[in-house]
Nucleic acid binder design. Sequence first.
DNA 1: CATGAATGAGAGTTCATTCAT
DNA 2: GATGAATGAACTCTCATTCAT
Lengths: 206, 206, 206, 206
Amino acid sequence: MPKVGMQPVRRRQLIDATIETIHQHGFADTTIARISKAAGMSSGIISHYFGGKNALLQETMRSLMKDLRNDYMVRLATAKTPMDRLEAIINTNFNEEQFTPQVTVAWLSFWAQVPFSDQLRRLNNIYFQRLASNLRHELRQLTTEECADEISSAIAAMVDGIWVRTGLSRGQADIAGARKMVLGTLRLYLANSPSPAKCPKKHAKK
Amino acid sequence: MPKVGMQPVRRRQLIDATIETIHQHGFADTTIARISKAAGMSSGIISHYFGGKNALLQETMRSLMKDLRNDYMVRLATAKTPMDRLEAIINTNFNEEQFTPQVTVAWLSFWAQVPFSDQLRRLNNIYFQRLASNLRHELRQLTTEECADEISSAIAAMVDGIWVRTGLSRGQADIAGARKMVLGTLRLYLANSPSPAKCPKKHAKK
Amino acid sequence: MPKVGMQPVRRRQLIDATIETIHQHGFADTTIARISKAAGMSSGIISHYFGGKNALLQETMRSLMKDLRNDYMVRLATAKTPMDRLEAIINTNFNEEQFTPQVTVAWLSFWAQVPFSDQLRRLNNIYFQRLASNLRHELRQLTTEECADEISSAIAAMVDGIWVRTGLSRGQADIAGARKMVLGTLRLYLANSPSPAKCPKKHAKK
Amino acid sequence: MPKVGMQPVRRRQLIDATIETIHQHGFADTTIARISKAAGMSSGIISHYFGGKNALLQETMRSLMKDLRNDYMVRLATAKTPMDRLEAIINTNFNEEQFTPQVTVAWLSFWAQVPFSDQLRRLNNIYFQRLASNLRHELRQLTTEECADEISSAIAAMVDGIWVRTGLSRGQADIAGARKMVLGTLRLYLANSPSPAKCPKKHAKK
DNA sequence: CATGAATGAGAGTTCATTCAT
DNA sequence: GATGAATGAACTCTCATTCAT
């Protein structure tokens, strides 16, 4: 059935089936048989399109990152101020498409593999560095460099913590609550940070 | 849960070997053979003492929780004020024994299994509820109930976020940095929370 | 055996690609994908032209036999005496086209399958019987029937032994050396064989 | 069932089952499942004792060589003269235990793999070199160095040719016929070789 | 005619568990 | 109590074949 243009379609179907299978059965029980069945295809198709299970898993993580990236690009287009862009970052990390039980569970699964896979570690580093870089860039226009770095780290940790907790809960993802929590923390930090002056921690510290 | 006639020493050695093996090879490649070899025992011993691999993994997670709990109890003994106890909670979550690459990687691995194991979910819920309960109890003495809940959630998310990021980094755990970040955020929240009054978020939201 | 409507050119290309692939990767790793790629065609073409992989392999062996046969026919045309024809047989078995690493390795591979394939056994029996028959026919004009049979067997075994050893060596085939060895042995036998009399073995055995 | 001393027994049983399976089904259809079934064991046992199928196949070929070697050693003990030892070499190569349909088919199978496996090539080179070395050593005491090398090559080729033809025939192995053929050829060569003088080929070549 | 995407049976391997010692 | 040899189910991957285009 040589249908031109099927390759990207099949690959996307298999990646979606992978996310769904991880969500249904867990990473450890995500087998080629289950993925291909979820995609309505034969087991051999995965090696055919990806070369093997590992490559599919990598592509799935890469796809998850790309989805976040694309969402951010869309939001960035309409953001005018640094604060707009910070909100865009937060809203992207808790958007309706990605901040779901399926996707948070998948991320959690991949994170557990990251320390043991060079490929996944590389992918995750890109994600981490990109988030940190975006946050810092906007924050440095609102406060000192030192404060920007500190706030960036705090916000990034909180975002990931919320993702983990959502993945663990298996319940509905609370998009509004997540955005409110992170944005609230961000505003609190900024409200207590000097524009060119010192950092709130320094104040807080006694 | 040492049954009668079983030697706690053997069980502890096997649990330690399990944590070490997860850290060395990852959860997926943590086999009975590797654990028992790391413990210097035969492969049959695990079924003998724990009934199976899954039971050992559960006991390992339970043990990790117990270690945190014990550390907290010790710190609690010398904490006088609510703020002392909040600091104790934070210090416990980033203490020298548990906040290590080995243990954070193990937690990360268990978290990835939590959504698919009733046993692990139950264990993790205990941990989450205990942390939330402890935080809320102390915070409610320092601010309104609403604010206490909000701050508790934020702090808990940040703590877990830092654990995830440490597990992912495979590097040294930055105990001082972690404590400073969470304590700083906590102080910032409290400094902007009314004692009996309203919550900082409300302020920040303009 | 080119069926009607099939292009002999394609079939020959595929047979050549089969020999080359066996030489490159070995019989066990000679797949449809590799053969068709080596021939610059699609994988489906083999079923299309031959009906399946096994049929292609059979045709390949048949082709190897036919090449030897053709070479012999050419040499036979200019051979006048029995000894001329014996030399022609030997020279055919070690001719520049077939006595190559590619072809000897392919023969070796087919021989290993012969005991388990009726088709290949049948083909090989034809080759063996033809060689024996040709040898015997000429020899019987030079010595007794008994001696002719004995010499024929010895020469045939030596020829095949040299083929095996050449296939195993993966080096250049030593055409001159092979011809000299077999022809030398043949002459030795004949020099010690009576025309109508007894056989050299009987003599040698004292 | 920890029974001491079982390891060599099991390994031998599996090697024997491998030879039998190759003989029954051919090298290509010699699967782990068939070998282990023939040995009356589970499929996992092969990885347990040999690490994998390839290692078992290698050990099987090594075992075949060792059997020949052992037989030769026994015969060597009672051989006094060079001619005795030459006969011992020939008799070893066509002895009742190894010169059987089972073993000749197995050798043929391994020979077909030799060009594509470094391990098997190494093993086979040992066999070839040993045979050539043994032959040459005895022959040099009976004729010139040049003649000894030539006879050695001829005899070795004939021996292997007879093995191949026996493997291909699937019939009973004709031990007496094989010995007679090779010994007869050897005697013929020697009868026409000078002690310190020239080689029979030179004569024959006119 | 010719293609190559898709299939699915079967291969080798891994590994938790069992159990005779 | 403690061992580790043995099992066999489940996994990933390969590949000859089929067939819509």
